[in-house]
């Protein structure tokens, strides 16, 4: 039974990080219809910014997280301005290739600067908590609490603020949004900024129980894509629920089936689901 709860905890940890990363991806997709293959690289850059500021400059964990969020948000906006905006009306294949180009560039750049070796990110929260007879590392609690409070903040932002509701309006109806005079450029930059910041925070939360290296975003971005296809491209609740589904499937699959193949579970799920329903589980319709 205890092992079972351990897996529940694992699933929650994985699921909340997946959800966070998928949220950024789904926001960008919903509003700009760009499948941002570079999103995993943004996540990776976020981890490196936190790592460097903490280890080399001795900055506090939370300050480092904030710095990473700001830096990656700026980087994401830069990508939008320089790359995705000029490609708005290009054939659909072009923005995907450009996104891949950005991803390759960022990875190579980080690798040149800091090498390909694996690094462990320090965290001030190393104690092991003992809750109801279960041993739980504090960082995991932090991940789950952090991720879900960020999702709550994002929800409030989208629902309660003017900018937020503009973003939602544009996600639901792009043409309509233009008609009522929404500044599409501003919304696009805002969306990229939010998505970048989410990735950076996710990375800073997750990296201490994982490793930091240039290719760390690869697997994650693919899983995030699986999640937003499951959850319906562009759907915010879909990203969170999808994240949790994949998180739990991996935790339990890895434990009860095979750790070797746990990374395949998400993709196998995708193959099965898309074979049965080509538009995803919760999609509102084909885009």
């Amino acid at each position: 039974m205890e092992l079972f709860f351990q897996q529940v905890l694992n699933g929650l940890t994985l699921g909340s990080i997946y959800g966070l990363v998928a949220l950024g991806l789904t926001l960008v997709y919903g509003i700009l219809h760009v499948p941002n293959f570079a999103h995993g690289a943004l996540y990776m850059v976020g981890a490196y910014v936190s790592y460097i500021t903490m280890v080399d400059f001795g900055v506090n964990y939370w300050v480092a997280m904030l710095l990473a969020a700001v830096a990656v948000a700026a980087l994401a906006v830069l990508c939008e301005r320089l790359v995705f905006n000029p490609l708005r009306d290009a054939p659909p294949i072009h923005d995907k290739i450009a996104a891949i180009g950005i991803m390759l560039f960022l990875e190579a750049l980080v690798q040149m600067q800091w090498g390909a070796e694996f690094r462990r990110m320090p965290t001030p929260y190393t104690e092991i908590l003992d809750i109801a007879g279960m041993t739980i590392p504090a960082q995991r609690v932090l991940i789950i609490a952090g991720a879900f409070s960020l999702m709550a903040v994002l929800h409030l932002f989208l629902k309660k603020t003017m900018t937020g509701s503009t973003i939602v309006a544009m996600a639901q109806n792009r043409e309509g949004a233009f008609l009522v005079g929404i500044d599409a450029n501003r919304v696009a930059m805002m969306t990229f900024a939010i998505s970048g910041a989410l990735a950076a925070v996710g990375a800073t939360l997750f990296a201490p129980i994982n490793l930091v290296y240039p290719a760390m975003g690869h697997l994650l971005i693919m899983k995030a894509f699986v999640i937003i296809i499951l959850g319906g491209m562009g759907s915010i609740p879909g990203a969170i629920v999808g994240g949790l589904i994949i998180g739990f499937a991996e935790a339990f699959g890895g434990f009860y089936i095979s750790t070797d193949y746990k990374d395949i579970i998400a993709f196998a799920l995708l193959v099965v689901i898309l074979s049965i329903k080509p538009t995803g589980l919760f999609s509102k319709g084909v885009h």
Binding site: L87, G101, L104
Partner: peptide, 12 residues
Amino acid sequence: IVFGPMLVVLVI
């Protein structure tokens, strides 16, 4: 480092 930006410049 060269190919990545090159891809972007090419498609644009």
